[in-house]
Simulated scan of single mutants.
Amino acid sequence: MFQSFVFKEPSPITTTISMVAFVFVAFFGISEIFGKHLQFSKFVNVSSNSNSHSNNFLQSKLSSRIGMFIVYAPPCVVGFASFVMYPNGETRFIMLKSAVTIHFLKRVLEVLFVHKYSGGMVLGSALIISSSYITLVAVLIHLQHLIQEYTEPKIDLKYIGLTISLVGICGNFYHHYLLSKLRDKKEKGYKIPQGGLFSMVICPHYFFEILDFLGISFISQMSLSFSCVVGSTLYMMGRSYVTRKWYISKFKNFPNNVKALIPFVF
């Protein structure tokens, strides 16, 4: 049944890439739960290896704005470059390039003009995340270019995917905006987020980012994109789980009914 939703794999290599991508991203989600965090935001100084590698160049601490710009700007450039490298294409291919590029352009604009920062980001974590995004965007767009002449899946999900992606982008931006309004420019401390779905989950911005990735995978309809969205979901589940634990440890009045990522469920 799954084959009704996805394009035929161009080669066994692409199947391997999909499996590696899933394992890679899922590994970081499991690592989050067991206390080995990608070091940014609340967890910039929390890592089992942070002390033993304090003199390592990759452990250099950046401001959050610079770190996040390093994360999102390069894949955004790759997205724009794809329109130059592959100027033509059918509807699905154009939709995919656009959805991916808009996703990262939005994140860059948020980094520059929306977010307010506390903490920072470790260079090594910034490079890991950025290189992962660069690779994913480049491979995803290239493979989508290669399969344009392939027979379309029996069930066409690209327009459903576009709708889901737009909902994800809007919901993610709205909750980032709410986070930015929690404190004024001079405040650096953390507060319990309010408004929107923050009354139900502590990481609704992650929830909507998953929706955005899910929408992109529906537009693409390749096993690579589906593998990445499942892996990303596992990572964000891990990250939101430890984020909720962090809020509970810091705020005695943290509401027990507020879940980590999925309303009423998790």
Rank of each mutant, 00 (worst) to 15 (best):
L234K: 01
M68Y: 14
F173I: 10
I141D: 00
G79M: 03
L109Q: 03
N55Y: 09
E187K: 06
V230C: 07
Y190Q: 00
H176V: 00
S118R: 13
C228V: 15
L214T: 11
F104L: 01
Y247H: 06
L214N: 04
T101E: 08
F218G: 09
Q39D: 05
A26C: 06
S227K: 02
P75W: 00
L178F: 02
L261G: 08
S47T: 09
G161Q: 05
M68G: 15
G29Q: 01
L261I: 00
F104P: 02
S131C: 13
Q3T: 15
Y174S: 10
M236Q: 06
P255I: 04
A21H: 10
A26I: 03
F173H: 12
T101A: 08
S60L: 15
F80V: 10
I17N: 02
F40D: 02
F264D: 04
I155N: 06
S130E: 07
F213E: 10
H142E: 13
I141K: 00
K259C: 08
Y72C: 02
S240P: 01
K191E: 07
V139F: 09
Y72R: 05
T135I: 14
T233N: 08
K250R: 12
L112N: 05
S225G: 02
T135W: 06
F198G: 01
T16Q: 14
K158C: 11
N257Y: 10
I210M: 08
L136Y: 15
F69H: 12
